[in-house]
Design a protein around this nucleic acid. Structure first.
Lengths: 125, 125
DNA sequence: TATACGATTGAATATATGTTCAACTGTTTA
DNA sequence: TAAACAGTTGAACATATATTCAATCGTATA
């Protein structure tokens, strides 16, 4: 109903953080990992959170493929595949080998291979 | 060295897609899942690809907590937690229960609980 | 009943991210 | 040696996403 009325916050001693359920919350706090660990973990997961990259990884879990064939397979540009492969390479999820003017990529992460071979929609993260 | 010279593309019969390594590529193509499956899978993974949500899920894997305590625990606003919880609820990763003016949330996904209890940095997706 | 409080919501913002495009590299081959 | 080709790169763009802020809801309480 009414809004923006005068507000007089309940003054609380210091600037200390107050939990409503102190015991439980403190116990959880003691289990918490560092910000950095959560951040890095999230970065790794993000790498997998894109349909195009998932397709690439799935394809590379089936066979060693050159950039060109991956692009045709997914019906997208060479350039796009190359961009994604760079990221996947940085994250050490794929490995590559040069042969003449071609570059052959393979999946280089057994955990991801398992996700795909173990049914895909079955485990589903 | 030089650039933008006249280009005469090698004309190839029809508009058919051509693989460089036809046999391998066709075999991989036959294993491919639908766009929709990749898309939905990626959506689920994306939900986990954020540090704040990971922290929330980890906290809720340790105990049932109210929004307010989660916010204090992570040193972020109530509002932010609420936004994230809505998404997590939509994705059926958390469950909640109302009690008076408070809402208590818990983790509602055993697979995620395993990821956390099995070492966190050990499996690391 | 008016105020406080926990929680939710929507709009606004800033930033991150996927995709496209054009230019370029290095290798092959005609 | 010049053209074709596989692949890479950086800038530009559009969209998605996380976070903030102010307003609001419903419940409790002084």
């Amino acid at each position: 109903m009414a809004k923006s009325m005068i507000v007089k916050k309940h003054e609380h001693d210091a600037g200390e953080v107050e939990f409503i359920h102190a015991e439980k919350a403190e116990s959880v706090r003691s289990m918490m990992r560092s910000d950095d660990q959560f951040f890095r973990f999230a970065e790794k997961i993000k790498t997998l959170g894109d349909p195009t990259r998932l397709k690439i990884l799935f394809a590379l879990s089936q066979a060693e493929l050159c950039v060109c064939d991956i692009a045709n397979l997914l019906c997208v540009s060479n350039s796009l595949i190359s961009h994604h492969l760079r990221l996947l390479k940085t994250m050490r999820l794929v490995r590559y080998r040069r042969e003449g003017k071609m570059a052959f990529y393979v999946l280089d992460d057994e955990h991801i291979r398992n996700i795909f071979t173990e049914g895909f929609n079955h485990i589903e993260e």
